[in-house]
Amino acid sequence: MSPSFSLNYRNRDLVLGALAGRVKQPTDIAQSEKALLSVNEGSLYFPIFHRNVEVGGVFIGLGQVIVDAIVETKRGAIGQSREFLWNGSLLMLSEDGNWSPPETIPVKGKHLKEYLLESVDEAQERAQGIFDRFFEHNRDWFDETFIQRRRGWVAQIFDRQRGKCALIASGDRIVLKIADWKVVLSGNKLIEKDGRKKVVVAGRGGTVIRLG
C-alpha cells in the first residue's frame, strides 16, 4: 500500500471544493466487508480535495448506514447487523485513489429549500462549517489513527435525531459509534456496548464475556 496519503489539517492539504450538485441516484459511497455507507438521491455533494485529488466529500441530505457487527467463532456467530437511516450531513474521507465521486446533477433553488437553505452560498457555508468542525474536533485522533494506517475510510455523520455518529472501516475492522451503540470489531474480536449492555467476544475459540 503506497504511503502517499498524508492528510494534514494543519498544513491545509485538504480543501473543501465548491458545491458539485445533487446526487443523481442512490449511491453506495463506501463499502468494506462489514459496513456500507450510502447517500440518497437529491443529497447535496461538496467534494474534498487532497492536493487536487478528490478523496471524499461532504453531503447534506439523507442516506443509510449498514453495519455487520458480527464475528464468527468456533461456537457460532455472535453480534448483530444493523441498519440506520441518517438525516443531516455526512463527511466522508477515503484513501487516496479509492474515492469514486457520486454522479451529480445541477442544483436549483427549490432543491436547496428542501434542506432549509436559501442560497448556494449558504449551502457552501454550512458544508465548510462541517468540514472545519470535523478537523477541529478530531485533529489529534485523525492524525494518529487514520493517517498512520492509511487504509479504509472514515465517516462522520451529524444526524438530527442521533447527534454525532462516527464510523471508521477498513476490511473487517470497524470502529463505530451511533448514539448508544458502540462497536470495535477486528477480525474475530468484537467489543460491543449497547447502552448498558456490554458484550465482549474474543478469538475464534468463542470466548464470550457478557457484562451488564
Partner: peptide, 18 residues
Amino acid sequence: VTQERVRGRYLITIPGRM
C-alpha cells in the same frame, strides 16, 4: 441463524449450534 446485511451471507449463531 443470522444474516450479514453487507455481504448477504448467512451464519449459524451460538444458539444455532446448541
